[in-house]
Amino acid sequence: MATLTVDNITYTYAPGSPFEQHAIRQVSLETVPGELVGVIGHTGSGKSTLVQHLNGLLRPMEGRILLDGADIWAEPKKIRDVRFRVGMVFQYPEHQLFEDTIYKDIAFGPKNMGLDEAEIDRRVRAAAAYVGLDEALLEKSPFDLSGGEKRRAAIAGVMAMEPEILILDEPTAGLDPRGRETVLAMIEEYRRSRGTTVLLVTHSMEDVARVADRVLVMNGGRVAMLDTVEKVFSRAEELEEIGLSIPAVTKTLLLLRRQGIPVDTSVYTVEQAVQQLLPLLGGDGVC
């Protein structure tokens, strides 16, 4: 599996005009094959701009992006090949469905890769299975599906390219709790079975806590933190200063510690919190 290296990139919108705006500044990052990185930050923190660099949709003004050590912009004409290796699911991907059947829409990416019919068919069916779309749905029009199904079909369209690195920009935005759960679970399943590196852009700390190995916190176009989930959440005060809400469990423990109760605040799931609190209550069993 591939390694993606972001080497000190800077990108400015509308340079030289009165509207000039630094979107990201001196951002560096290196992915470990197979890991899931949660990219988190405020609106306007530069997280979406950053991920659009990773598959060559934006070209950095300074710095380089390396895929397995090779600069992706070495040959600008071949940038399409990079996009097949680094798959990107945009926000509200269901708004980009356009074919008359789900099958054809999922096949759009693989077709652009120039694969043969049999391979396209295999990939479409495999991707549909990953996202839990019934075979019967494949021949339906995208516009006849429910919101959640559309979202999953659209994600399948990128998964079918079988990228080595998969980037998802807010894949759970606008979904109900069950929909979120389904989407997160299928991303995890896809990663587990294929060993794909995943970058998950989100503003939900709960999502990050659930699935991420590492967290990249963006603030004002710069990398504020890049560390394991535990270490990032243990810096809860800093996160709050940036204006990011930490998981409710972590917040509770943080308040307890402020009152002088000795608890570890790097905790982010209910189970871990129980482990912390039970001894303090003097009991050792579940009440």
């Binding site: 659009q52 598959n55 949709l57 399409r80 996009r83 097949f84 798959g87 990107m88 699911v89 945009f90 926000q91 991907p93 708004h95 980009q96 759009f108 990416g109 652009n112 890769m113 369209g157 990128v158 390219m161």
Partner: peptide, 16 residues
Amino acid sequence: EETDKIMSAQKARGAD
């Protein structure tokens, strides 16, 4: 803005 976004999304799927 929407057009820009859709273009990027389809480019990400290899649209030429």
